[in-house]
Design a protein around this nucleic acid. Sequence first.
DNA 1: GGAAATCGGGAAAAGGTTTACATCGCGCTT
DNA 2: AAGCGCGATGTAAACCTTTTCCCGATTTCC
Lengths: 323, 323
Amino acid sequence: MARLAEVSTATVSRVLSGGKPVSPEVADRVRVAAQDVGYRPNPAAQTLLRGSSRTVGVVVPDLGNPYFAEILKGIAAEAAADEHHTLVAGTEEDPEQEYRSAIELARWVDGLLLCAPRMSTPRLREVAEAARRLVLINRVLRHSAVGSVVVDYHLGVRALCEHLASLGHKRIVYLQGPTAAWSDQQRQRGFRSPEASGLTIIRVECGSTLVDGREAVDEALTYQPTAIICFNDHVAVGVLSRLRELGLSVPADISVAGIDDAPMSAHTDPGLTTYAVSTVELGRQAWERFTPRVTTATTHLQGELVVRGSTAHPPRRGARTSR
Amino acid sequence: MARLAEVSTATVSRVLSGGKPVSPEVADRVRVAAQDVGYRPNPAAQTLLRGSSRTVGVVVPDLGNPYFAEILKGIAAEAAADEHHTLVAGTEEDPEQEYRSAIELARWVDGLLLCAPRMSTPRLREVAEAARRLVLINRVLRHSAVGSVVVDYHLGVRALCEHLASLGHKRIVYLQGPTAAWSDQQRQRGFRSPEASGLTIIRVECGSTLVDGREAVDEALTYQPTAIICFNDHVAVGVLSRLRELGLSVPADISVAGIDDAPMSAHTDPGLTTYAVSTVELGRQAWERFTPRVTTATTHLQGELVVRGSTAHPPRRGARTSR
DNA sequence: GGAAATCGGGAAAAGGTTTACATCGCGCTT
DNA sequence: AAGCGCGATGTAAACCTTTTCCCGATTTCC
């Protein structure tokens, strides 16, 4: 220990940790000694004593999904700025594993940030009980004190429906996300809105990944839609790819829209019409909510419709569209 | 404590942790009690005592980069399978921040996994000293005991050069990655290989992100290349996007190639010719190397050339290409 | 000038677990 | 039948800090 190097024992703590009164002279001596010996307080001991690890746990369904990666990035950056570390766990979209990871992580960290958790509500309650603090992203837990940051996806779907309806679309396929995803239900809510009332919505099971999107296209086409709305942009990219493979042109033959505005969405060909959500803001808000300062219930984040090249008038059926 | 609930003190530990001999009867009693009280051993105390936190630190230059996200995913999965947690830090491509994060993380974890570290060699040595264990991904540290898992990018570049040369390309722009990236130097090495001897390689400063790629295109075009090789696929997607914006057709007007085979690379339009590296394998190998079992120096991973639609014969200049 | 208040620093306890050591009882060997 | 050994359990130390309490000294105020 650096104690021997100089004089005291608890004084070291006062110098290195608390803002307790220490004479500048002694403080310097301690700092120099610590520097010399390369002394670093043991985090485990600190944690044990002060009862906080200055660490946050983040659980996401899929680390490979750019959307979650972005959110994680945002959270990690915010946490680091607040001198917290980030413990991360990917769950491969498996609710069981998600539950276990969350419970396990809860032992280590000061609090948990759950991204779009797929687990059941009762289980979520268990987690809420096990964790010292809990913030949900894109999910809410009613009748509880746990805070949430959610994107108003139903508004996104409404905007998308309105946009497509105004272009003249009537038959639209919606490629569903994971059934366990709360955020998928929010999207579904959007389809029951006035904006969607004139539209025929066909739901096709899909998933949340690029490959899921690819594979759902063929079934989607059997319903002969003039447009496809995808669970997210990741899926949409897969859809675009498969459509191209089938020789269909977007948007001339069929329109495609995504949700989330992934980083790549502006750079696909054609650019993806989507409902843009700021992941940075999402991460920031989540951290804000995590911090003891603010304890409001749920924060709603709105995105905005971004129209790019992937949506246009439906082909023929009535008048030639592009005048 | 659950001790009171039943009978003993250290027996609890024997039941819950070690495989020490305990009579089945007592073991059951302990388990039931633990269940009732919801008792969980305190990780900090465990860490403090056993001197290991069963946690690994992963530092990556950019969490938003799908390539690193994939690697992180692989590592986290492997670590979880081995009952380890994953502490993560993104460094925004800042060597200084990277160094600080690594040093700080080293205090907490059993070992560090550094992804494509940008920091200087001396600093890297400092980190190697501070960390209990250290594994490098896409970087080597000579004259040291730290293990590495690296992709043989120079082979990738050679393959790409050979491919492009065989198509008839002569002038190629290489969009450089971050200058601090060791892996960029590896790529550069590839350009000094026999396969590239007949080619004129023009180096243009770029970066590692999609936006970097977009922005480098205009300068690249001033050199009138017939092909562009990008630092990675992420950059290449940005390049494709900008080229399309400029009204240039790929591969008819210009060929584009990436490196890494990001998940989206098969789904761009056109599909991206690239040097495919298995991030799964990379993560797996890194974990393997991290584990005390294996201590070999550096593992070399080879990728393979994947030819997709983004590369073809150069336009005119000599014979019409497409037969 | 003396007493009280304040400030700086030291000793020691606490925080929760693991593990080495000691203890105790029982079965087996000779 | 007695001793020995092994298996099962309790006791206590150790892990490394932080923090509370306390004491000594210096300063300030009356």
